[in-house]
């Protein structure tokens, strides 16, 4: 399970996260919703260890282990997976080579044996079929020349291969048409179970019709300002983020309330 306590972080001296408290128990899927600029992507990068994000306070543990001190690859080996909002293109790096290298690195971290090329291909083909991905995708460069939908499916394929215990999906629904959204959601739902938790970051409620969360949290101005059941997502869809903001004491308002506080 993922436990975050009082997590604050800044970029270039600018405070973005201002004390996040969040717990995602094993086996649960939680959603984080929030308007643009609320710190959603920052949270995903801080948890996965991207350079340039400085943690100024608080803790984050995955299955009881402090992850904030780890290198990005150590976090991955510890079971954390980030599905990127904008998957990076790696010209010249073959998708198959990349996947196999990553999988074996993570397996090694888990104390499992490495897969040889045949074993790897067998698993990869199986997973790709489930995600309706053409096999020639394996031969191409990582994400190079992929459409937006293909890139997102590629992220889900990687997740399925690496079998993390905790996945963060950062705006995975952006740029997807309804068919692709369904495929991606099926991919995530297939992994749900007692050993898997996920944090689904999204701006819209749409994705949550397909990946129904156990809990929904609203992130605004760098803090979790409200939490509730799946119905909270519908509430937000109907009333917008403004409604929540108005209901908050001024010290929790992100649009200038800070200065007043």
């Amino acid at each position: 399970m993922l436990r975050i306590e009082g997590l604050s972080a800044e970029i270039d001296g600018k405070e973005i996260l201002k004390g996040i408290d969040l717990e995602v128990p094993t086996g649960e899927v939680h959603a984080i919703m929030g308007p643009n600029g609320s710190g959603k992507s920052t949270l995903s990068y801080v948890l996965s260890g991207r350079e340039g994000y400085e943690v100024t306070g608080g803790t984050a543990t995955l299955n009881g282990v402090d992850i904030l001190a780890m290198e990005p690859e150590e976090r991955a080996a510890a079971g954390l997976f980030l599905a990127f909002q904008y998957p990076v293109e790696l010209p010249g790096v073959g998708n198959a080579t990349f996947l196999r290298t990553a999988l074996n690195a993570v397996r090694k971290g888990r104390g499992e044996s490495e897969l040889d090329a045949m074993q790897f291909l067998k698993v990869a083909r199986q997973r790709m079929k489930a995600l309706s991905m053409p096999e020639d995708m394996l031969k191409r460069g990582v994400n190079v020349g992929f459409s937006g939908g293909e890139k997102k499916r590629n992220e889900i394929l990687q997740m399925a291969m690496l079998e993390p215990s905790m996945a963060i999906l950062d705006e995975t629904d952006s740029g997807l048409d309804i068919d692709a959204l369904k495929i991606v959601s099926d991919g995530v739902n297939a992994m749900r179970g007692p050993g898997f938790s996920a944090l689904v970051i999204t701006h819209y409620q749409r994705l949550l019709d397909y990946i129904v969360p156990d809990r929904v949290h609203v992130l605004m101005g760098g803090r979790i300002v409200k939490s509730g059941g799946p119905e909270l997502a519908h509430e937000l869809e109907a009333q917008g983020y403004g409604a929540i903001q108005e209901g908050l004491p001024s010290k929790h308002r992100f649009d200038g309330g800070e200065a007043a506080a």
């Binding site: 290198e71 991955a76 990127f84 990076v88 790096v93 690195a105």
Partner: peptide, 21 residues
């Protein structure tokens, strides 16, 4: 970062990128 976030150690990630280049 993308490579490292997938669990590939830094030195290996660098090697992959240089080779690809």
């Amino acid at each position: 970062f993308y490579l490292r976030a997938r669990g590939i150690p830094e030195s290996q990630a660098k090697a992959m990128l240089v080779e690809a280049f």
